[in-house]
Simulated assay, not measured.
Amino acid sequence: MRLWSLHPRHLDRPGLTGCWRESLLAQAVLAGRTTGYRAHPQLERFRAQDDPLAAVGIYLEAIAEEATERGYRFDRTRIDHRPSADGEQRDGAPSADGRIPVTTGQVALEWEHLLLKLSDRDAERWERESARTGPELHPLFVAVPGDVESWERAGR
């Protein structure tokens, strides 16, 4: 399960669709609808929120928005707790300033991991993304100084 801290606009088609599926799985785990993946370390940052389902709903909504911008149709009715259309948060979701912190070390690791995937799967996107000075974060997250997150298992 890869729940990227990076903005979904950086992901290629397989990355975006995979992130959608895996985020829906994360939502099912957090809602208690599945017994698999309950101990998955990437869920720690969602479980640490006052309302984990609302947080994962915000996460999913940004993925769905990116999909819409690309002409894909992800079924937003599958999101249990969606932000309202006017930008106000519903269902106890974190406020705009209640973003989840993610360390700069984690962001760097994910960026490197994504660029490696893109170099294998999508040369054009790899060229465009690798020319950037760095990634934009998913809107749910805010960067804070630090090493790779304790829950990260890739590259350890």
Rank of each mutant, 00 (worst) to 15 (best):
S95G: 15
G36S: 15
Y59S: 11
G15F: 09
A85T: 05
P139K: 05
D86N: 14
Y72R: 09
H10D: 07
G57H: 00
V142I: 15
D122R: 01
R2F: 14
W151Y: 15
H138I: 14
L109S: 12
S150L: 10
L115D: 11
R153D: 08
R13I: 11
P41W: 12
E112Q: 14
R70D: 11
A143P: 15
A55W: 01
L53T: 03
E66P: 08
S130C: 07
G155Y: 02
P14F: 09
L114W: 07
R33I: 03
R73D: 15
L11V: 11
D51T: 08
L114V: 04
E127F: 04
T77I: 03
L114G: 01
L60Q: 06
H7N: 14
L16M: 12
L115H: 13
H138S: 08
P83T: 02
P145Q: 04
M1K: 00
G87R: 03
Y37K: 13
G18I: 03
Q27F: 08
M1Y: 12
I63C: 11
T34G: 06
I100H: 01
E129D: 11
R121S: 14
R125Y: 03
R45I: 13
D75L: 10
A93P: 01
L109M: 12
A154E: 14
R47C: 08
G98M: 00
L43D: 06
I58D: 01
L115N: 12
L11N: 06
A108V: 00
G87D: 07
A143R: 05
A48W: 12
A55I: 00
H10N: 04
R21F: 12
